[in-house]
Design a protein around this nucleic acid. Structure first.
Lengths: 344, 344
DNA sequence: CAAAATTTGATGTGCGAACATCAAATTTTG
DNA sequence: CAAAATTTGATGTTCGCACATCAAATTTTG
């Protein structure tokens, strides 16, 4: 039942070669005949050999160096993300892995690109980066990867770049969920749905919009979406656009806030409507949003767990750097749906 | 910024003692004066020393032995759980951790208790167990823990026992979510809600019932719950009770299946009603449930990710056995809510 | 066929901690 | 104060692997 784990010696014995040769094959060192390589690989497979990760990490003694590139002082969600990077950095210090945070300006592709271009493959092994959708950024990412850095995008993706992985939710699906909840919570009623984004140049907001619009059109014809308003992910701007909306459209029965700025929206909602009158869905479980959900101002909150995202980014970068295995399902970032009943 | 990780030598130097003494303190070996212990501990804290886990695991050379105690051939969810135990066992084999599965009879407290009592602390370090709620089981758990085994309950809890941890969802919250979705998806309508459990001796089903009933009573007075029916977590029995329900209660507007046996329920629903006529909520994303959700027979599925639960149980047992740290948030099992839009 | 080039094996070192042993230093006790 | 008991330090071994070196064996080449 329990097979003792094979070690290099065992592999060498089975392959009929010396341990040094097995070592050469395992670490892709030169100077081994192709036919010998084949023999060793057969033995590896036969014994299902995997290096003992603890011994390996100890022997290499190498410290992984990871950089997190994050917008500075952007919004509450980013603050949560940042906190978690620090927590994780603290923990990972004890596992031979250093994590530093590099700040960039929010919404500013040039700033992100400049930071990425400044990352030398001498100093860093991997990067996790929150990116705006811009050509400049795409090129900087591709350059990083070409230099040999491992790179994952975080929260917002840039699929056409050479990034090795994306750590975040499926935003189209999130939008669809929002659309369906708006539709079903309004069962029977008809009216208008207001959509608020941070900025439509943010890919994640754009995708949420697409998903929501799709579902509303296809399955809830009694509800029609108003044109998307931009709140700049900022409480004051969001408050202003929300006030306009609520004043000018008495027939609004639902609101989907795809971006940040929850504080502003909540304030205006409370001022303008009775609780429960407008079905409202928002993103990210910030303290204000949480409170609004409990009070009934919000009806549901869609959420990505920033802590999970950070841990996942680190695990994936580790795996990429040390060619370990990635456990797919473990790295699936969930679209969490919070009602007032299942708050953590 | 980056402090090089402290090693035992550093601690010894700071404390002004030899490495052997630090080692004695770290591993709680006897023969050190209290005052020296204090000096060493001060140094440990000052340097924020943590043993290098890779070196430690390598040196100990000990293999963790974990047992998963799981009901045999119970239902699809348990099958998924079992699959994942095997996957994880395969992966953990390479990390000095052996995992075995012990089968017990479903619903059978005596069988579980006997199995637990058979686990010697010589052969095992930790146990994860899916328990029915029975006094016999509680005693067996307490005995295990008293023997020095680390023990976590899985999926279904027994809070009054001495188990070190529970790995699973908050079932009361899950029930509340179900209640709210039933209420809101039925916005305006009034009628009866059918509740189906596997068995009310299962704590998780009982708790779901409580949560759901709570919310319905408090917030959706137009909906009244019928008495709970037991489907034995089995497709045929569930089909039979569902058929009865649907025949005898034309005023049913919602169904909450708190247990397994989805296949039976789906079959009867399709036979008796138009899709969309009865709001239906069920648990666990099995292939049949998934299909039903896509087709509109089900309206939402509440779910606990068995893969996450298994990984979490292993991590927690590891931490308990090697007195490592537990990352709380990472081990929080989420109540996942699936609509047809966010299926993985 | 001999010389040159390539492959291979044996061997050693270090990673950081766990654990063991023994001698030296210190404290306690009679 | 000396003998006994307790604490302490120095040292060595082990875990499994990565990496390096050198000599021996094999193959290739002219």
């Amino acid at each position: 039942m329990i097979k003792p784990k094979a070690k290099i010696q065992d592999v060498a014995a089975v392959a009929g070669v010396g341990v040094a040769t097995v070592d050469r094959v395992l670490n892709k060192r030169p100077g081994v005949r192709q036919q010998t390589v084949a023999r060793v690989e057969a033995a590896l497979r036969q014994l299902n050999y995997r290096p003992d990760i603890h011994a390996a990490r100890l022997a290499k003694g190498r410290n992984l160096r990871l950089a997190f590139v994050i917008p500075r002082g952007h919004n509450t969600f980013m603050d949560l993300l940042l906190d978690e990077v620090h927590n994780t950095a603290e923990r990972m210090l004890h596992e031979r892995c250093f994590i530093d945070v590099l700040f960039v300006e929010a919404f500013d592709g040039a700033s992100v690109a400049a930071t990425l271009n400044g990352l030398s493959e001498q100093d860093w092994d991997g990067v996790a980066v929150v990116v705006p959708d811009a050509q400049l950024v795409r090129e900087a990412i591709d350059a990083c990867v070409a230099r040999g850095l491992k790179l994952v995008t975080l929260v917002s993706d840039l699929p056409s770049s050479a990034r090795q992985h994306f750590v975040g939710i499926d935003n189209i699906a999130a939008g669809r969920v929002a659309g369906r909840l708006l539709g079903r919570f309004n069962a029977g009623r008809s009216g208008r749905i207001a959509l608020i984004a941070g900025s439509m140049v943010l890919r994640d907001h754009m995708e949420r919009y697409m998903g929501c619009e799709q579902v509303l059109r296809a399955e809830f014809p009694a509800l029609t979406a108003l044109p998307v308003i931009e709140g700049r992910d900022d409480a004051e701007t969001t408050a202003a656009v929300a006030r306009d909306l609520l004043l000018n459209h008495p027939d609004i029965v639902g609101i989907y806030n795809m971006g940040a700025g929850n504080r502003g929206l909540i304030r205006e909602l409370k001022a303008a409507r009775q609780p429960g009158q407008v079905v409202t869905i928002a993103h990210e479980l910030t303290p204000h949003a949480r409170q609004a959900l409990l009070e009934g101002t919000y009806d549901a909150i869609l959420c990505q767990d920033p802590a999970h995202e950070v841990r996942s980014a680190v695990r994936i970068l580790q795996a990429l750097c040390e060619d370990g295995a990635i456990v797919r399902n473990q790295e699936r970032i969930r679209i969490e749906i919070f009602l007032k009943d299942n708050l953590p």
